[in-house]
């Protein structure tokens, strides 16, 4: 049997066996990081805790829609957290795409899962190689409630420069991903 990353293994056990020990392992890894992300985004401690609770319960309840052939655990949880954050901040449900029908069998295409994991690892190393300035812009683009014009206000750089820098940073990420496709 091919072995996947720890996180994928935990998540598959949660999905297929409703394993609480594996859920605990996911909780211990992600809950403190989610809390860090939320508090950096301006959530107070109590509000952040509420969102962490909702997100981790969604991870348990929506586990059936986790598909390692398409997404890595952290990206899947990120997206749940982001939707929840928007629900809380804007008091509205964020529009989400129609879910794809899940395959009837829970057999995983091991090669595809490993492919996704390898691609994501490449992406991570690309992110790790960004210089601090680029890294900050990528973080703002992906994590902040910032629009491009808000970024301009914060850094005092002209909008055009920021836009092209974000694109350059992204392009590097994209190329890194594409090389593996």
């Amino acid at each position: 049997k091919t072995s996947f990353s720890e996180q994928t293994e935990w998540m598959l056990k949660v999905r297929d066996q409703r394993c609480k020990t594996s859920f605990g392992a996911l909780f211990d890894h992600f809950a403190p990081r989610l809390r860090g992300m939320l508090m950096k985004n301006g959530f107070g401690a109590a509000q952040a805790d509420d969102v962490v609770q909702d997100v981790m319960l969604s991870v348990w309840r929506k586990a059936a829609s986790f598909n390692p052939e398409r997404a890595e655990v952290s990206g899947w949880i990120f997206q749940i957290a982001r939707n929840r954050q928007i629900d809380v901040i804007r008091k509205e449900r964020r529009p989400v795409p129609e879910e794809l029908a899940m395959p009837e069998s829970t057999d995983v295409d091991g090669e595809q899962v490993l492919g996704v994991e390898q691609e994501t690892a490449k992406l991570r190393s690309a992110i790790a190689r960004l210089n601090p300035e680029q890294r900050e812009l990528v973080e703002k683009a992906y994590l902040g409630e910032f629009t491009h014009s808000e970024i301009r206000d914060q850094t005092g750089l002209p909008l055009g420069t920021i836009k092209s820098r974000i694109r350059l940073g992204l392009e590097r990420l994209r190329h890194e991903l594409k090389g593996e496709r």
Binding site: F30, A31, P32, R33, L34, R35, G36, M37, M39, K40, D49, V52, R70, A71, E72, V73, S74, G75, W76, I77, F78, Q79, A81, R82, P97, E119, T120, L123, R124, I127, V138, E139, Y142, L143, L173, R174, L177
Partner: peptide, 22 residues
């Protein structure tokens, strides 16, 4: 494409300094 962008978000989330949860 969306999955790729979410993977960036996931990588950043994984990198966050953990803050202890009660």
């Amino acid at each position: 494409e969306l999955a790729a962008h979410e993977a960036v978000g996931g990588a950043l989330l994984d990198d966050f300094d953990p803050i202890m949860v009660s």
